[in-house]
Structures are given as C-alpha cells and as structure tokens.
Design a protein around this nucleic acid. Sequence first.
DNA 1: ACCTTAAGTGAGTGATTACTCACTTTTATA
DNA 2: TATAAAAGTGAGTAATCACTCACTTAAGGT
Lengths: 219, 219
Amino acid sequence: MSEDDIIQEMLLNEDNDDQLTPKQRKILQAAVEMFAEKGYASTSTSEIAKRAGVAEGTIFRHYKTKKDLLYSIAVPMITKFAAPFFAQHFVKHVFNDQYSGYDELLRKLIHNRFEFAKENIPLLKIVLQEMAFQHEMQEKYKEIFSENVLPRFREVVDHFKEKGQIEDYPTETVIRLTITTIVGFLVTRFIIMPDYPWDDEQEIERTISFILHGLETQS
Amino acid sequence: MSEDDIIQEMLLNEDNDDQLTPKQRKILQAAVEMFAEKGYASTSTSEIAKRAGVAEGTIFRHYKTKKDLLYSIAVPMITKFAAPFFAQHFVKHVFNDQYSGYDELLRKLIHNRFEFAKENIPLLKIVLQEMAFQHEMQEKYKEIFSENVLPRFREVVDHFKEKGQIEDYPTETVIRLTITTIVGFLVTRFIIMPDYPWDDEQEIERTISFILHGLETQS
DNA sequence: ACCTTAAGTGAGTGATTACTCACTTTTATA
DNA sequence: TATAAAAGTGAGTAATCACTCACTTAAGGT
C-alpha cells in the first residue's frame, strides 16, 4: 500500500464507521435516505427517528442539533469527492510522463469519480441540494477547491498547454470546461436521468473525446 | 412582429403582470427573494408577508396554499427558459441555410439564454433547487423537454450530422454534451461564481468553440 | 460485586407552522 | 350614489417542530 493510498484511506474513514453504535448507524442511514428524498428542511427529526427505529432523544444524544447531523453526513462527502486531488501521484505521474496525454488523466479521473458517484448517489444529492443554503458547507467546498483541486489541476493543465496538447485558453477556462463537462455528465447520468438506458463505457469515452477535441490546439 | 414573436410574447406573459394587484406583486417579489435565499421549505408564509408589507391572510387570498405560490413562480419559468425552442424559426432558419453552421445556432442560443439568465438569477436558483423535490415541476420539465426541446434539437443536430459538420455520435449524446456545457457555463457564471471577474464575451466564444471542436467530425 | 460512564428512552415544552374566518376596506359597475 | 364583488386584514387554531430532561438500561474497568 503506497503512501498515497494511506492518505486516501484516512480521508475515506474520517467519520470512522467502526466506532459507531448500531443505533447511530441506523440514524445516519435513515437521515441520508430522507434528506436525499425530501430535502433537509422538509425532513423532521421525528421522522428520522421513526425510520431508524430509535427514540427521538437518541438522535440528540449523538448530534447536538439537526444541522449537526446534516454536516456530519455532508461535509466529509465534499472531501471524498475531491479525494483524487489529495493523492500525490495525481500530479506526479503527469510530469513523469506516466500519463502520455491529457486523455489518460481524464480517463482515470472520470472512471474513478463515476464509480464513486454510482455508490453515493443519495449523498451527492444531499450535497448538491444543501450546498446552496448551508454556509459551512460552502466554506468547506471553497477550502477544498482552492487549496487542493485548483492548484493541482492548474499544474497539470499548464503542463499540457506547454506540450502543445491543449489550446491556449486561460487555464481557469480549461479547468471550468473540463469540470463542468464531467460533473454535467455525472449529474445527468445519476440524478436527472438515472433510468435512461445508458451505455456507460461508450458514453464515458465520448465524453473524454469531446473534452479532448474541444480543448485541442487548433491548426 | 412575426408570428413567432407573438407566441413568445404570450409565453412570457403567461402569468400576466398587468392583472396583478400591487400587494400581489409585492408578495411575489418577496417570495422570489426569500425562496432563492433560504429555500422554499425554510421560508415561512409569515416571513413573506412581513417582507411584502402585507397581512399573512392576503397571501392566502391569492394563493390557495404555500405550494401554489411556489408553482405560480417556478413553473412558468421552466417554460420561459425553454422559450427559444417554441419559436418556429429556430428550426426553420437552419434548413433554409440562414444559419451557415452549428456555431451560429449555438451563438444565438447562448447569447439569448445568457441574457435571460442574467436577469432571472433568483428564479433560476429556485427552479434548480426545487426541481429535485417538487413532482409537479418535474412533470412540467419533462413535458417541455420531450415535446419541444428534444425534437427540435434533434432535427437540428441530425441536419448538421448529415452535412458532415458534427461527429457521428448518437444524437442524444450530442444534445447532452451541448446542453450540459451551456447550462454548466450559466450555472458557474451566475450561481457558483457570480463574483469572479468574468470576461463574458470571450468566455462565451470559448464555450462555443469548445463545443464545436468537441463535436467536430474527426479526420 | 461495585461503580462510573455512556447509550437509550419518551413524555413534555415553548415556539413556530400553514392556514381559516369573520370582518373591514377598496374598487368597479350600473 | 347604491350595491355587489373583490381585496385586504389579523387574531385564532390545531398540528408539528427541534430540542430537553429525568430516568432506565447496558457496558467496561477494578
């Protein structure tokens, strides 16, 4: 297990499941389901308690407030979704030419985040929804994005711009176009049209080549 | 004024402002502001009444329920956002070669929706947020999309695919990539990072050429 | 076995919720 | 100017809200 893998492992177990009471686990599970279904503000603590098979007081034994419960669910998810950008090798491989081009990086990134999204749909729904209103979540997002995602992404894009693989747009524009295309795909695939008969492998490849050609240096 | 313009005029005045009481207008204005700021579920009718300078009962004189108030605001907005697809000339011009290529169509569409978004940010926020939970809004969206947006978009894309301007992806994929890129741009520009020092004209042109080259037939 | 601490409970609380209704005021029409 | 309809009001209501607290049960260390 590499050093990076250990870091990622830690990130994933920030809210370590091991030290949770069975009832606490049921509370979290019920809360995730209901927040995703009806939204945070429209879900009452009594409903959560009922679905979890727990007395309402038990919720407040573990979480000081209802908002505490939300944050304990949603904030770690923001970090987890950005996890690839915490791995050292994400940038390192690019400069060691272990990625031959932007396409390989994109392919790894999309496949990786696709699988993650697939297994965390309700959690992603909650984050997307509540990000709009919960300031503490916005802060966490801004922190992660500006301190981890943006600088590393910038290094990579600049590198491929110098190699002449990417059109000479501002780096921020390249990042914006890349991220919105990927996130747009994931949101469409898993949230807006989850029941559409997707051919995932092909659709991922088409998305990659759309980004690549869209950013390709024009002759 | 062409026939299309008349249709669009009608669409825009579906909830005709003219026949609104001054107090009713204040209620709508207050509701839009607060729903966008704190979300529908977290906004109480008493707060709306207070901000509108109106007795709480007045709200229910005009809107049977709180949800009625939301729908009267949000549902027409869905139609308005899709308005370009109701205009006959949207498709007609393409086949009369009045648009020389996909780029001109994209340019018109993006500029048009950019201006619209710019002047309706709170309303767009509300629609984006509440679409997740309000079934009646989802129905309206599906109806508009599958009956107006999708078929007309399909005609246009098929036309340019036959002309060899667009890569031979499935039409649905081309539409998905186009729409998510445009919507992704608008959401980033006006909702996620409204304070970033945007160079709108340049960013629009870059977005257009990103889509164009991304979809361009590869030699 | 004894004690301390943590986990779990559920009836109770004051505040707030969407909505009603009897009433007053304004507007429109004849 | 008389009259009916529409607009506006605000105190009142039952339900629900997040949260508390005195209490019981379970777990772990010595």
